[in-house]
Design a binder for these strands. Structure first.
Lengths: 159, 159
DNA sequence: CGACACGCTGGACAACCTGCTCAGTCGAGA
DNA sequence: TCTCGACTGAGCAGGTTGTCCAGCGTGTCG
């Protein structure tokens, strides 16, 4: 993870269509080098994919909410998480510290529709309580790139 | 957003490297059709990008936490959010309903390092209080595709 | 000091893909 | 019935990818 890697990541984030050859020309390095770097970044897990990024909003799900779930003592995290994974509107689930047990991000077609999604979630076996927080606006959209730039003089990706 | 669109999105999510021609062969449609569909999906905002997906973990930031921030009455949301955007470890910021004013996702190099990040956040002008919840494990990684599949008989992307 | 491993360079090649165009076909709607 | 939009199948030039190779400079290690 040196400067070239960082520049490559920034470049491909800005212009995903640039391609290996284009990047090599832009950065003034050999094509093989770019190819090797990208291969290594994928091999080390820094780049996890090249798939299309989808907008839930454009798909008709403009409402985002965060649910903090409390689960029954006798229910493990995993079966509940598996059940949550079966709900399409559940985009993300983490176990957390603090008052709740699970945190999840859900989306819905409207405020009214959010009720349906929440009902679906709390209706799952093993879920005891849920607290809902709605996201009103996105001030900073999800991003990772600043982290890459921040690592200029910091540690490597290899543990 | 018909069946072909949905299949295309699923296909390119599973195999991003397949390319337009490969997808057309796989699905048994003309290449021009695939190209037109992808163009339309990008134009309507369903596909927001093709950039590389980066793993904070592989970049050396394995710790994820969610901060709920309370800001001073006299401070607007925006200047605070702008300041937050200046911190690389802040990956995402939303305004929310409920007890807090802002919600953000942060990452850090270690549990100890999380303290540094939190200090940096709460040190920003306009931030009064913060509550931290740490993410322990990712039960369901962020995904949007199920939403696409769920929309089989539901509304369109066009408003 | 010398040998070695490693990464980068510049080049080459065939195979492939993309962007673009065009005429023809088909179904839905006016 | 006519028209429009979308899909098909085809073709073309140009660029790109995947994959080699030899050469070279640097840093490490014996």
């Amino acid at each position: 993870m040196d400067d070239l890697d960082r520049t490559l990541l920034a470049l491909f984030t800005d212009e995903p269509r640039i391609g290996v050859l284009g990047a090599s020309r832009r950065l003034g390095v050999a094509r093989g080098t770019v190819q090797a770097r990208l291969d290594r970044l994928e091999a080390t897990g820094v780049i996890t994919g090249w798939g299309p990024e989808l907008s839930p909003e454009a798909l008709g799900y403009p409402v985002t909410a965060f649910l903090t779930l409390e689960i029954s003592q006798d229910a493990g995290h995993t079966p509940v998480a598996d059940a949550l994974a079966g709900i399409p509107e559940v985009l993300e689930v983490h176990t957390i510290t603090g008052t709740g047990d699970l945190w999840c991000r859900v989306v819905s077609r409207s405020n009214a529709d959010l009720q349906r999604v929440i009902d679906q979630v709390v209706g799952l076996p093993g879920i005891r309580r849920s607290a809902t927080v709605m996201a009103l606006a996105t001030q900073v959209p999800y991003r990772v790139l600043p982290l890459v730039r921040a690592g200029v003089s910091a540690g490597l990706a290899r543990p």
